[in-house]
């Protein structure tokens, strides 16, 4: 049985040129969706159905695409949760963070809270789906992976560690069936008061020396950093030395 998978897509932004593009993580979400559901994958966007970037997603081999038509200033979450509640869906895939707008990464969590589903953050892969339970690989820092099982239905945000999106073909992208659904979202009132400016480079932290006297400051500026506090083992046998190292490795939890 193939699961019902929905991939949510948004309009990305190229980090250098600032041009609209297929968002990195959403593209990976569509790729993962195609792996799980093949042609039956539904792809959902909230916003303007005329947006040319949607064709870049469609060019990954999607026969159809649904767009919930909405103003740009409106909040996407109510429209999404209304729509997702109507359909019978097993897995919703999103990116971790959008590349435009607020970029808070709250969409999967808000949807999950509204629908009452569990949310799995930073998914690298969905390995298997069996008897209504999915085995999911989470991307951890330092290239580590954690295996987690979760009951369907659930929401997953797709990490950059997932398989990269396939190349987009122009022709099929133009031929996609666009289904647009009219919704009326409410204007995001809180956001109206915010001020937006191009990002300033963040100041680098300087190493300040809190010394009370000139002699201390001089010492801090010139002295070689010296630990000197480490334990040194000289006369023990090789086995004892190795044991000490091994204990430290176990204590630091680096060997399993």
């Amino acid at each position: 049985m193939q699961p019902n998978v929905v991939s949510l897509i948004s309009i990305g932004r190229h980090p250098q040129s600032g041009r609209a593009r297929r968002a990195e993580q959403d593209g990976r979400g569509v790729e993962l969706g195609l792996k799980l559901a093949g042609e039956k994958l539904s792809v959902l966007h909230v916003g303007n159905p005329e947006e040319p970037v949607l064709r870049q997603y469609a060019g990954m081999g999607l026969p159809a695409m649904t767009v919930l038509k909405q103003d740009e200033t409106a909040d996407a979450v109510p429209a999404l949760s209304d729509y997702l509640q109507q359909e019978k869906i097993d897995i919703v895939l999103t990116g971790v963070r959008s590349e435009s707008g607020e970029s808070s990464g709250m969409v999967p969590y808000l949807l999950a809270e509204k629908l009452g589903w569990p949310v799995v953050a930073r998914v690298a892969d969905i390995v298997s789906i069996k008897d209504g339970v999915a085995e999911v690989l989470l991307a951890l820092p330092r290239g580590q992976r954690r295996s987690v099982t979760v009951k369907l239905p659930f929401i997953a945000s797709v990490d950059n560690a997932a398989a990269p999106a396939r190349q987009s073909a122009f022709g099929p992208g133009q031929r996609v069936r666009m289904e647009s659904v009219n919704t009326h979202g409410e204007v995001d009132q809180i956001r109206v008061d915010w001020q937006e400016a191009p990002a300033k480079p963040r100041p680098k932290r300087l190493k300040t020396v809190k010394a009370k006297t000139a002699a201390d400051r001089f010492k801090a500026a010139t002295a070689k950093p010296q630990g000197g506090s480490g334990k040194v083992m000289k006369n023990e046998s090789a086995a004892e030395k190795a044991k000490a190292i091994f204990d430290l490795l176990i204590e630091e939890n680096v060997i399993r």
């Binding site: 959008s98 937006e196 400016a197 191009p198 990002a199």
Partner: peptide, 10 residues
Amino acid sequence: GGGGSLDISR
């Protein structure tokens, strides 16, 4: 915000 391209004051 905006994928690291915006500073939002709020």
